[in-house]
Computed example of a mutant assay.
Amino acid sequence: MHPVVVWSVALIIIANFIINIVEKEIDPDVANLQYAAFWSGCDTVSNILFLLELLANMYGYGFGKMFWGSGWNVFDFIIVAVGILLMTGIDLGGMAKLKLMRAFRVFRLFKRIKSLNKIITALLSAVPGVANAFIILFIFFCIYAILAVELFRDFGSNGTYMTDDLNDVSHINDAYTPRGYTNGREYYGTWTRAMYSMFQLMTGDSWAEALGRPLVFGLYQKSTFTAGAFFISFIILTNMVLTNVVVAVLLDKFVAPPSPPMTDEEVNHFITFIKWTSEKEKQNREAAQALLPPPDPTVEPRPPSPKSALVARLAAEHEQELLLPIRIERIEKSSQRVAALLDELFAQSVGPSPEPA
């Protein structure tokens, strides 16, 4: 938990992540690696460092339930265990693909850097609300996919579709896609294809030329209402409304809820404590004044002289020294009273503590 250890491990994770990026940039051919020894050495050093850090972490938690009760610790254990297993060189067959888990090591930063951990924690807490919004979005996707299969599946089924210009001149257009399917069969032939087309439509990825315009101009030639209403309503509902609902729910979970206000009983206790403290302070001041010698009525007060300023200051300091033990005792008593009151308020809000077994 020490900041030096936390940031040292974070720098090792970042360095390992950067090495993986450089490897895939300058030496991407796994079957013919140019610097295989260097990449293997870096991976071995990283695995050993991560193993030592994991063992130290497990030792700090006592190798018990406290360690395994944290999801981040379980994630660390899986990542490190996979790395050590691959480092042994054992023939794992298809399990060798576990090497891809190296890319996920960078997620361990979210455990060690508090600012990143807060974001991930907020995202995880937002999952239930966001999931509900996604379910609504998914339902609309399903509805429009069903409609698309019903309306557009047979579009261009004979390999062509016809359009009309303003002079009532018909044009025959090729309905085949680069994959050899007709337009309707490729994009709307089945429910799953239509679902993917709806996702492309929502993201705005070249949907107009591939998905929309052939249907708008060629489905019913001069009547563009059916295709136009279908696409425009889908974009308004999903891209403009429901996706913003998802974002709104997500942002709402990032805002910390306000602290609960004090109850009436707690406010009454606090007011009583302030009154009682003020009364005790008054009594302490009167007791301190009683310790001072009374003024002599036979001595006439003299006008202050310039030389008496130093004497007056020294006398005031001497008076403060005389009252110092009284003030220390008063501060200690006030601290004890505050502690007792806080204990009382905490016991009332939490409830009585369980009896020891």
Score class of each variant (00 low, 15 high):
Val4Lys: 03
Ser8Ala: 15
Leu11Gln: 03
Ile12Gln: 04
Ile14Pro: 05
Asn16Cys: 07
Ile18Tyr: 02
Ile18Ala: 11
Ile19His: 07
Val22Cys: 08
Val30Asn: 09
Ala36Asp: 12
Ala37Asp: 12
Trp39Val: 13
Leu52Pro: 05
Leu52His: 01
Glu53Thr: 12
Glu53Ala: 13
Glu53Tyr: 06
Leu54Glu: 02
Ala56Ile: 08
Tyr59Gly: 05
Tyr61His: 14
Phe63His: 09
Gly64Asp: 08
Lys65Leu: 09
Met66Pro: 01
Trp68Arg: 03
Gly69Gln: 01
Ser70Phe: 04
Ala81Glu: 05
Leu86Gly: 12
Met87Thr: 15
Gly89Ser: 06
Gly89Pro: 06
Asp91Met: 03
Leu92Tyr: 07
Leu92Val: 15
Met95Glu: 09
Met95Ala: 15
Ala96Tyr: 06
Lys99Tyr: 06
Lys99Pro: 04
Leu100Ser: 14
Phe104Glu: 01
Arg105Leu: 07
Phe110Asn: 09
Lys111Leu: 02
Leu123Gln: 12
Leu124Asp: 12
Ser125Leu: 14
Ala126Asp: 07
Gly129Met: 06
Val130Met: 10
Asn132Leu: 15
Ile135Ala: 15
Ile135Met: 15
Ile136Val: 15
Leu137Ser: 12
Phe140Gly: 12
Cys142Asp: 07
Tyr144Met: 09
Ala148Ile: 07
Leu151Val: 11
Asp154Ala: 08
Asp154Arg: 03
Asn158Phe: 05
Asn158Ala: 14
Asn158Thr: 12
Thr160Gln: 06
Tyr161Thr: 12
Tyr161Arg: 09
Thr163Trp: 03
Ser170Arg: 08
Ile172Arg: 07
Tyr181Gln: 10
Asn183Met: 00
Glu186Arg: 01
Tyr187Ser: 02
Gly189Val: 05
Ala194Thr: 08
Leu201Asp: 03
Trp207Phe: 14
Trp207Gly: 08
Ala208His: 13
Glu209Leu: 12
Gly212Asn: 06
Gly212Leu: 05
Arg213His: 11
Leu215His: 08
Tyr220Cys: 00
Gln221Gly: 00
Gln221Lys: 14
Phe225Cys: 02
Ala227Tyr: 02
Ile235Thr: 13
Ile235Pro: 02
Ile236Met: 10
Leu237Ala: 13
Leu237Asp: 04
Thr238Gln: 13
Thr238Ala: 11
Asn239Tyr: 04
Val241Asp: 08
Val249Arg: 05
Leu250Ala: 10
Leu250Gly: 03
Pro257Gly: 11
Pro258Ala: 14
Pro258His: 02
Ser259Trp: 01
Ser259Asn: 09
Pro260Tyr: 04
Val267Pro: 01
Phe270Arg: 13
Thr272Gln: 06
Thr277Ser: 10
Lys280Asp: 11
Glu281Gly: 11
Ala287Tyr: 03
Gln289Glu: 04
Leu292Cys: 00
Pro297Thr: 12
Val299Pro: 00
Glu300Leu: 02
Pro303Glu: 02
Ser305Lys: 07
Leu310Pro: 00
Leu314Met: 09
Ala316His: 07
Glu319His: 00
Glu321Gln: 13
Leu322Pro: 01
Leu322Met: 11
Leu324Tyr: 02
Pro325Ile: 09
Ile331Leu: 10
Glu332Asn: 12
Glu332Val: 15
Ser334Met: 12
Val338Trp: 02
Asp343Arg: 14
Gln348Trp: 05
Val350Thr: 15
Pro352Gln: 11
Ser353Ala: 15
